[in-house]
Every structure is written in structure tokens, then in C-alpha cells.
Amino acid sequence: MGNQFKTLVLLAVLSAILISISYAVIGGTTGIIVGVGLAAVTNLLSWYQSDKIALAAYQAQPVSAQEAPGLYQMVERLARRANLPMPGVYIVPSQAANAFATGRDPEHAAVAVTEGILNILPADELEAVIAHELTHVANRDTLTQAVAATIAGAISFLAQMVSYSAWMTTGSRDRATLRLEGDRQNANPLGILLTVILAPISATIIQLAISRTREFAADAGAAKLTANPRALAKALQRLEANARNIPMQANPAFEPLLITNAATGQFLGNLFSSHPSTEARVAALLKIEEQLITN
């Protein structure tokens, strides 16, 4: 299944969840119409602005060749090797060690690294991490991941608003509330409850199902681009250890963009992890190393 088709399927499913929220809250034809309009606006926003939203979520700051010459030249060299346009280069002001790429296509891509990752990784491992992110750009994973993060974030936000509204309605039985209830007589209370609980979970599962498979592909692409699979394997292990002490702080909807989980050891971490286990990724990289040696 091509990446563009996967993106369309992802947009359709997440849009359906948005429409379901609207229908559950408002009810009837009005709920569907409002939901369709909301989905259309969110899709357009995420398609054209998802890169800016992702960069803003992590407070990433653009840097020039003069401001960060070593990093900039490394990205430039790897982009040229991968036959990609030069992406924007950003630094995230965080001591957590992580990195991500975003952008709707290679011509509008950006690669961001944290201050923490610049501090703890040697040059060959940092190069492997950047190669991983550029592979995401080349595979156009950045569009799917950023769009998914934006829409999933919108779904979670709306579900929280619905939950808050329902709580306020229950706690205040004044005339204004009664009139509001009259206007929403077609709404389904059970549907609202299920929406509040299930919609964010569904959106998260859809994100993670795509994110996990694409991480293996990006790891393999980085190994090919650098001809040094072990460097990425070591980097992943180092980043996982760092995440135990300094978790990445940001909207959880954007975690699938990162090269590794923002934090480790969370409850149900394996079930709702945005990435495959580090052990599995390292094993796959070492297998690629064996194949390179054999060949």
C-alpha cells in the first residue's frame, strides 16, 4: 500500500471520528453537517500547516549555517546524499534527547533536534539519527505523521471539551442549561459518553499502528544512507536511557513524530507506545549490519 493511499485512508478514518463526535454531541442531520465541516477545516489545516504546528508544539527554533555550522553541514551533506532538497534545520530548547522531521513533502520539510541530543551523541550517532529523519522525509512519512498528530490532537481536545461541558451541565441546572438541553434533545447521552472515552483512544491506536511500521523502514533507510547500522543502534540505546531521566515534554499527539518514545516505563507503555521497542529496532539494525558484512 503506497504512502499517499495510507495518508488518504488515515485522513478518512480520523475524519469519521470527528464527524462521530459531532453527531454524538449534537445529534441528527445538524450534527453530521457540523462534523463534516469541522473535518474539512481540520484536514485543510493539518495538510498545509501541520509542519508549523508540530514545530510550534516543541518550540523548535530555526538555525542557519552560521548559527549551527556543524549541524547544518551534516544535514546538508546527508540530504544531498539522499537526493533531497535541503530541509529547514531547527533546534528544540530541551535537554531531553530526541529528534523529529516534519513537512507535507520534501520541498517543505524540516528536521529538528533537541539541545540534549546534540550534547550526548557523538558525531556518527547524530549523523545516523539525522539520516533516519531524512528517510522519513524521503518516504513522505512526515505528512502522514504530522496530519495524524494534528487531527488526533483535535479529537482529544474536542473530547475533553465534551467531557467538561457534560460535567458543567450536570452541576448546573439553571434555565440556560435547560434551554441548551432542549436544543440538544436529539443528542445521545450514551453516545456522548462513549465518544469521550473511545474517540481519543481510537485516534491514538490509528496513529500508532502506522507509526510503528514506519520506524523500522526509516531505521533501514538510515542504515543504507550512512552504511553504519551500528551507529543508529547505539544512538537508540543512548536515547532510551536519556528518556528515563529527562522525558520530552509536549502534546502526546505529536509523540509519533519523535525518533524514540518521549518517556519510558509508562503504564501500558508497550500497548500504547508510539514506537517499536528499542530492543527490536536494535536487533533489526544489527541484522542489516550482518548482511552488509556478508555482502
Results as ranks from 00 to 15, higher is better:
residue 239 L to S: 04
residue 258 L to R: 08
residue 232 L to S: 02
residue 275 H to V: 08
residue 224 K to Q: 14
residue 261 N to I: 08
residue 246 I to M: 06
residue 249 Q to A: 10
residue 267 F to N: 07
residue 261 N to A: 14
residue 214 R to N: 12
residue 233 A to S: 15
residue 213 T to H: 11
residue 269 G to K: 13
residue 225 L to D: 01
residue 227 A to L: 15
residue 193 L to W: 12
residue 243 A to M: 07
residue 201 I to V: 13
residue 237 Q to E: 14
residue 213 T to D: 06
residue 243 A to G: 05
residue 260 T to E: 01
residue 191 G to V: 07
residue 231 A to I: 05
residue 269 G to D: 12
residue 240 E to M: 12
residue 231 A to H: 04
residue 246 I to T: 12
residue 257 L to A: 02
residue 203 A to M: 02
residue 256 P to G: 09
residue 252 P to A: 06
residue 207 Q to C: 03
residue 207 Q to R: 10
residue 265 G to W: 13
residue 239 L to R: 06
residue 208 L to E: 08
residue 207 Q to H: 09
residue 230 R to N: 07
residue 272 F to A: 03
residue 208 L to A: 06
residue 258 L to P: 03
residue 222 A to E: 01
residue 246 I to G: 00
residue 262 A to H: 10
residue 214 R to F: 07
residue 195 T to F: 00
residue 216 F to Q: 08
residue 219 D to T: 13
residue 247 P to N: 07
residue 191 G to P: 06
residue 237 Q to R: 15
residue 198 L to S: 03
residue 218 A to L: 03
residue 203 A to S: 04
residue 241 A to Y: 15
residue 237 Q to A: 07
residue 220 A to E: 10
residue 209 A to Q: 09
residue 264 T to S: 13
residue 245 N to I: 03
residue 223 A to P: 02
residue 198 L to T: 02
residue 227 A to K: 15
residue 234 K to H: 15
residue 233 A to W: 09
residue 267 F to V: 14
residue 205 I to H: 10
residue 254 F to P: 00
residue 221 G to M: 05
residue 193 L to T: 09
residue 209 A to H: 11
residue 200 P to R: 09
residue 191 G to C: 08
residue 238 R to I: 14
residue 238 R to K: 15
residue 200 P to C: 02
residue 236 L to A: 01
residue 199 A to F: 00
residue 275 H to L: 05
residue 249 Q to I: 14
residue 271 L to C: 04
residue 273 S to Y: 11
residue 266 Q to H: 11
residue 223 A to V: 03
residue 218 A to M: 05
residue 213 T to N: 12
residue 241 A to C: 09
residue 228 N to V: 07
residue 262 A to D: 04
residue 234 K to V: 13
residue 246 I to R: 10
residue 251 N to S: 11
residue 269 G to E: 10
residue 274 S to V: 05
residue 195 T to L: 00
residue 240 E to T: 15
residue 269 G to H: 12
residue 254 F to D: 00
residue 191 G to Q: 09
residue 200 P to N: 08
residue 191 G to I: 08
residue 207 Q to T: 02
residue 223 A to C: 05
residue 223 A to R: 04
residue 211 S to G: 02
